[in-house]
């Protein structure tokens, strides 16, 4: 359970040092993206259109935040993770095409994403579900928002974060998946109940 403080842009080399159960704290740019944003980003890629920002080495956060606008400034009120399994459909292609290195969410992701992370060199990190204030406190600034037409929860919020965590490495770039391993243990325990 080593502790790492990562600063974006994060390199593949830094990612390959991480193994499951490690704790990371993220500094730099964290970008929220849920189902609709993943879908649109991949459509852009297919059509050869450029994304509004370069995601290489950045961290992605499965999160639909509460944000309020005071005069011209966006203030992040609460920002806990949403269920990552919904993004399983897109994530492997997403990291392959855009080279985001850290995906943060809750509840774990499946085999296709795990395989993709191994190939591309990325990790999935679990942030405590519901810990929305803890997350928001690590956000120093809302730098920018794109795709607000998708709605507040689905937009790409570009957040400047300081020591965002603790994020538990739950899928590493070697194919280890903490949630799946634990689920196997649970199934074994079930037999003894």
């Amino acid at each position: 359970m080593a502790v790492y403080r990562l600063k974006t842009p994060i390199s593949e080399e830094e990612i390959r040092k991480l193994t499951v159960n490690d704790i990371i704290y993220i500094n730099g740019a964290l970008v929220t993206a849920r189902d609709a944003a993943h879908k649109r980003a991949l459509e852009f890629h297919r059509k050869g259109k450029k994304l509004p920002l370069n995601l290489e080495g950045l961290a992605i956060f499965h999160c639909g935040p509460i944000v309020k606008k005071i005069r011209d400034e966006w203030i992040l009120v609460a920002a806990g993770p949403t269920t990552s399994a919904r993004m399983d459909l897109y994530e492997a292609d997403f990291i392959k095409n855009f080279k985001a290195r850290v995906i943060v969410g809750k509840g774990g992701m499946g085999g296709k994403t795990t395989e993709g992370m191994k190939k591309t060199g990325a990790v999935y990190g679990a942030f405590t579900g519901g810990a929305a204030v803890l997350a928001a406190r690590a956000v120093k600034k809302v730098k920018k928002v794109y795709w607000l037409d998708l709605g507040m929860p689905e937009a790409l919020w570009i957040l400047e974060v300081e020591n965002f965590g603790p994020v538990i490495v739950a899928i590493d770039s070697y194919g280890k998946n903490l949630f799946e391993d634990n689920q196997k243990k649970v199934m074994k325990n079930l037999k003894t109940l």
Binding site: C63, P65, A78, T128, G130, A131, V133, L134, I168
Partner: peptide, 26 residues
């Protein structure tokens, strides 16, 4: 690992109470 999660939850609960902010975005 379980303890890290409970600790984060308790910290979050404290912060929400202190700053009167919703403890979860949902």
């Amino acid at each position: 690992t379980g303890r890290t999660q409970l600790k984060a939850i308790l910290e979050n609960v404290e912060l929400a109470k202190k700053y009167k902010i919703p403890m979860c975005q949902d």
